[in-house]
Design a binder for these strands. Structure first.
Lengths: 320, 320
DNA sequence: GGCAGGGTTGAGCAAAAAATCTAACTTTGG
DNA sequence: CCAAAGTTAGATTTTTTGCTCAACCCTGCC
């Protein structure tokens, strides 16, 4: 008689399957199901719930982005992000920056099109530049666009991947650039720059920004910070020796995501980063090379949002 | 610029896919989805609905009975049945009557276990007998069990597949058999039998029955009606010539399901069938041989419920 | 046979989702 | 360039769903 129970349970599962069929496939309401299977309404409810919990009914998302969505949600959960988007890997030979740029631009646009004035802050870099390049012309003078990072190299050149001026060209908002080197030559110079009235104004604005978009770079001999001349060979060597794996807006951090207290960090001329991030700071970065840097930034909550690509997302999740 | 629209639509579908993922796979509420995708709550609702209507999200029922459930619902829709159940094909060498019997018994039991007195009516036959054999003993004297068909052959023998007495043995209800031949030898005899007080009582009860279970047989040289001696060779020949394809409770009908006005039908000694059925009349029958008969009965609404097997259900639906 | 405990059931209620209605916007034809 | 029609987004109402709680029933145990 032991299988009396098993049989009863099977009967119930059959009924649950039927209820789930009617609910999800035939689109009946629970009341209709109750009538058809003649049980009470809440019995029908329980049957549907049972079918779901017993995995009798399976949901399958049939969409090219389904994998990316799953990755994004996994990242969001794991690192308690306010937002996360994962773009698909580019077609072979395709441009990664393009995909990230389109996605980040779509997100940025939701802020730009709003009629209520917002303060939007940005660091610089190739990825953010790709984002700005995707923004169509529009007339939104009500916003304030703020840079959180100096954009001149040691040699006084404007950085190649300037962001805020290009963005303001397109949207016509007021712009607050930081006309200083990213990294000052000395602590004294940095202190001097940071007492300038214009810098203080920018800093105050940046600290009220509704959203801040930042690039995330890795630190190595092919690091953008070095390639673009913001730091020299010696400074880079020092950062590497201090254990830096990544950098956001010029601020270097180690594998744990902890901001270094030495090296160029004592001379960065931009708006300081808060750790953990107190407001919406969206990191935009992708590519396997940056995996370590992104992971570190996520772990230590330097960023509270992330737009990345499938490859990096997969790699980040693989080792948590 | 023609693909502006396509692109916009794609963006929306991506978002819909994301919303559907969050809703069905991650189990978020629409409000949570709205927050995560930052759209309004009802926009999230629309996105989920869009994903469903665009078939981005697929539901798959992973259960042995899923095919049967789909068949049952298709039959129910097509013939406006009050209920329909389809049992799986038996394993090779398995017994069809057993599967049908178990399923029909489970359904009948829901009536038997009720505490409020019901009138339940039955025809006879091998399939219904298999059903009754599955009913466990119980004590439910409040019900009335009524036969709608005479159960003696021409020769005075009790039919082999007697139903109501066996059922009443098990459930202890009051029983109202029809102690006459299924088919009288003449119209006069039929008329005489039908004026008996006992028959009139049975008829009155049967017409109030909460549910009536009937078998459905085919008409051919291996027809049960003939094999069991209820009609003789000549009568069978006549029925076949009149176009009979099936029979319910002794009443023969043609391929359109129309009850014949001639042949043995003028001498059937049971309770008349109403066409279309005015109350819940559940046909219990399966097997490919009976396909034609079941289809006819469904078409002309001789029955308002059906319990059948996968093979017959598939065959019936194939030609509507 | 009675009683304790686990598990089910159904009613009512709160939350969620769908439908309906309204306003704004976009596109198209004049 | 304007106006009208159609479309879309948001507010409100209605329906549906999920959940809690008390009652119940069945089972197993004494």
């Amino acid at each position: 008689m032991g299988d009396m129970y098993a049989e009863k349970r099977d009967r119930k599962l059959d009924l649950a399957a039927h209820a789930a069929w009617l609910y999800y496939i035939a689109g009946n309401t629970q009341e209709e199901i109750a009538a058809k299977l003649n049980v009470s309404r809440q019995a029908a409810q329980r049957l549907v719930a049972l079918a779901v919990s017993e995995k009798l009914i399976k949901f399958r998302l049939d969409h090219p982005l389904s994998h990316c969505i799953a990755l994004a949600e996994a990242l969001r959960d794991q690192f308690q992000l306010a937002m996360c988007e994962v773009v698909p890997d580019p077609a072979v030979g395709g441009d990664l920056y393009n995909g990230l740029g389109v996605c980040a631009a779509a997100y940025l646009e939701t802020y730009l099109v709003a009629k209520t004035p917002s303060i939007l802050a940005f660091s610089s870099g190739r990825t953010l530049r790709a984002m700005v390049d995707q923004i169509p012309s529009m007339d939104q003078p009500q916003h304030k666009i703020v840079s959180i990072v100096g954009n001149m190299s040691h040699y006084g050149l404007a950085g190649r991947h300037e962001v805020v001026m290009h963005l303001s060209d397109r949207v016509g908002s007021q712009t607050y650039p930081v006309p200083t080197p990213a990294v000052a030559t000395s602590v004294e110079e940095r202190d001097l720059l940071q007492t300038q009235r214009s810098f203080l104004a920018v800093k105050a604005l940046a600290e009220q920004a509704k959203v801040t978009f930042v690039g995330i770079s890795h630190i190595a001999w092919n690091a953008p910070l070095h390639e673009d001349g913001f730091i020299d060979d010696g400074e880079l060597t020092e950062l590497i020796e201090l254990g830096a794996v990544g950098e956001i807006a010029g601020w270097a951090f180690n594998a744990q995501g902890k901001l270094l207290q030495a090296g160029t960090n004592s001379r960065v001329a931009g708006v300081p980063l808060q750790q953990p991030a107190q407001r919406l700071i969206i990191g935009v970065a992708g590519g396997l090379r940056k995996t370590e840097a992104i992971r570190a930034a996520l772990h230590s909550q330097l960023i509270s949002g992330l737009i990345t690509d499938e490859a990096a997302a997969t790699a980040i999740l693989k080792r948590g």
